[in-house]
């Protein structure tokens, strides 16, 4: 497991690995929003939690098809499947590597982008916390989508179509934590739900991902 994680991280930061692309995409989305809705700082502050969550989600989506497709193309996936690693472990490590290279940078950058969108002061903490709890779920669900579409030539669009509906609960509770936090309301319920979804997804979904990956390797 550890060598696989190390290799994936090394691949991500080397030339052509795509590290930072998600972050750049996130920045662009945040930059474009005021052009679309107008520069009034009161309006921007009100929609900031939702926009930041949506931007993070789309940035995450952008890199999902790299999780497994590259290993599929060069045959690594076949060879990994014959290695003494459980398939569930492989997909979990893949999801973890995706989170470390895409999700975590988004979490760290989100407060900075919050400034651009005039996020209310109490919102920074809750936005960061909700992203920290929610983005792992996005990576794990995304890995499931990637495992479903790994054998398809133009699977990218289909991957989005399959994964986005699965993102609905995470997005709702995550954005709700950030919004309520920014408005100074209680956040316990959505926070618990968000954490619950993340934990359940991390614990259970790798079994489904491994099952579909085995089918695709057949």
């Amino acid at each position: 497991m550890i060598p696989l994680l190390k290799r994936d991280l090394a691949l991500a930061v080397r030339a052509g690995g795509g590290f930072g692309l998600g972050l750049a995409f996130f920045l662009i989305v945040v930059t474009l929003v005021p052009f679309a809705v107008g520069p009034q700082s009161e309006l921007l502050g009100r929609i900031a939690p939702g926009i930041l969550w949506l931007g993070a989600l789309l940035a995450c989506l952008l890199s999902l098809d790299r999780i497994l497709a590259l290993d599929w193309e060069d045959g690594s996936l076949d060879l990994l499947a014959t290695a003494p690693l459980p398939m569930e472990g492989i997909v979990s490590v893949k999801a973890l590597a995706h989170w470390l290279t895409t999700g975590l940078p988004l979490v760290i950058a989100a407060p900075v982008f919050g400034v651009l969108l005039n996020l209310a002061a109490p919102g920074f903490f809750w936005l960061t916390l909700s992203l920290l709890l929610g983005t792992p779920a996005l990576s794990v669900i995304g890995t499931f989508g990637a495992a479903l579409t790994v054998g398809l030539k133009r699977g990218g669009l289909l991957l989005s179509l399959l994964v986005l509906p699965l993102y609905v609960p995470t997005l709702i509770f995550g954005a709700e934590v950030a919004r309520r936090g920014a408005e100074g309301m209680g956040v316990e319920t959505p926070l618990m739900m968000l954490a619950g979804i993340s934990l359940a997804v991390i614990a259970l979904l790798p079994f489904a991902s491994a099952a579909v990956l085995r089918v695709n390797l057949r």
Binding site: A10, D71, P84
Partner: peptide
């Protein structure tokens, strides 16, 4: 079983030694 087919499972941005070390470690 150690399996080898048409695709070698190599990563073009890793060096020869890194590629080989990775597979060695995967197999413990």
């Amino acid at each position: 079983v150690a399996y080898a087919a048409h695709a070698d499972g190599l990563k073009s941005t890793l060096t020869v030694a890194e590629n080989l070390t990775f597979w060695a470690r995967v197999f413990g």
